[in-house]
Each structure stands twice: as C-alpha cells, then as structure tokens.
Design a protein around this nucleic acid. Sequence first.
DNA 1: TAGGCCATCTGGTCCT
DNA 2: AGGACCAGATGGCCTA
Length: 184
Amino acid sequence: MKSKGKGSKRGRQSWAEQDDPDFTLETEPGSSEQEGSEASVRLGGTWRTLRGEGHGRTRVGARRRRQHGNAKERNVRRLESNERERQRMHKLNNAFQALREAIPHVKTDKKLSKIETLTLAKNYIKALTTIILGMSNACLPHAESHMETNASRLLQCYQQHLQEEGEEDLSNYLSHIHSFSQGS
DNA sequence: TAGGCCATCTGGTCCT
DNA sequence: AGGACCAGATGGCCTA
C-alpha cells in the first residue's frame, strides 16, 4: 500500500465500467473475486487488468470524442492501445539505457535516473563541442572571432554526415571533423 | 514515513 | 480512421 497520500480518487468513470449488457470480460483464472470493478483479460499471452476506477486526466470542459463500437470492441482497442504504449515506453527506456552507456559518469551501484541521464548527456555534448571547437580554432588561425561560424559549420558537417551515412558512424564523422579542422 | 522514481493506464490531440 | 505522442493520475518499490 502506498505510504503517502497522493490525492483521492476522482469520480471519473472510465469506459471499462460503463454499463453494457452484451459485454462480459473473461475472468482471469484464480482471481474469481474481483475487487471493485477490476477485471482481467488475456492479451498477447499475458493477462492484463482493466481497472474500473478512474485513471488518467480529465480536462475540464474537454469534449469527449464520440465513441463508436460496442463496449467489447472499445475494450479490445483500449488493450491494444495499452500494449502499444507499453512497447513505446520500453523503446524509450531502451534509448535511455543506451544513452546511459554512452555518457561517462562515476560508476556506482545506483543507475542514473532519467533526469540525471539527460542532464549529464547535455553537459557531455557541451563539453565535447567546446573541445572540438577548441581543436578547430587551434588549426585555423584567426578563427577565435568566428566561433559561431565554426559551430554552424560543425553542425552542417554533422548533418551532412547523417544524410550520407544514415547513422552515426563516429569514425567517419571524426574524419569529417578532421578535414574540417584542416580548413577544407 | 515522506519523498523520489518508475511503470502503467488512460483519454485527448496530432499526424499520416 | 487508426496509430503515435503526450501528459495527468495512481500505486508500487526503494531509500534516507
């Protein structure tokens, strides 16, 4: 049970608890006593629970999209939508994990949170950009006064590389940077 | 036990 | 029309 109170349940009625006489949910084996208006359905080989209690935001005054199809069809669409959302969030989390592994940080048992990952990544990019621009300035005399121009050329170089290669091949990109720093 | 972080559900909106 | 995206809500887990 949640130890801290995070607000009371709202009175919104979800689609899952709307009355529909011709819709019956398949009950998960072993969960014969459903609490409240919860029910479980089988989707993709796993049991998923439909909660009758209100979740999600309700915009005051927002007009509801007209719901078509019967409750069973809406339930199926909602479950499919939930599954897609889970997959989307899993992909997002995979991307976060890849980002964690890409940025240097002090190794601890505790993994970086999402906000820490984004903040560190931002700082890392800034630091690398500063280093690269410093290198290009060293190769290009009088370039100090054209920092913005150099940064712009750096970005153009990177975007061109992405268009040509389609993915981030760091060694190729660095060779571009190298030729750029040579004043080409 | 409070608070941070997270996964998940949900419905509205945007986009193709 | 349907999927992707977004953000609010909620509950679980963990730690100080």
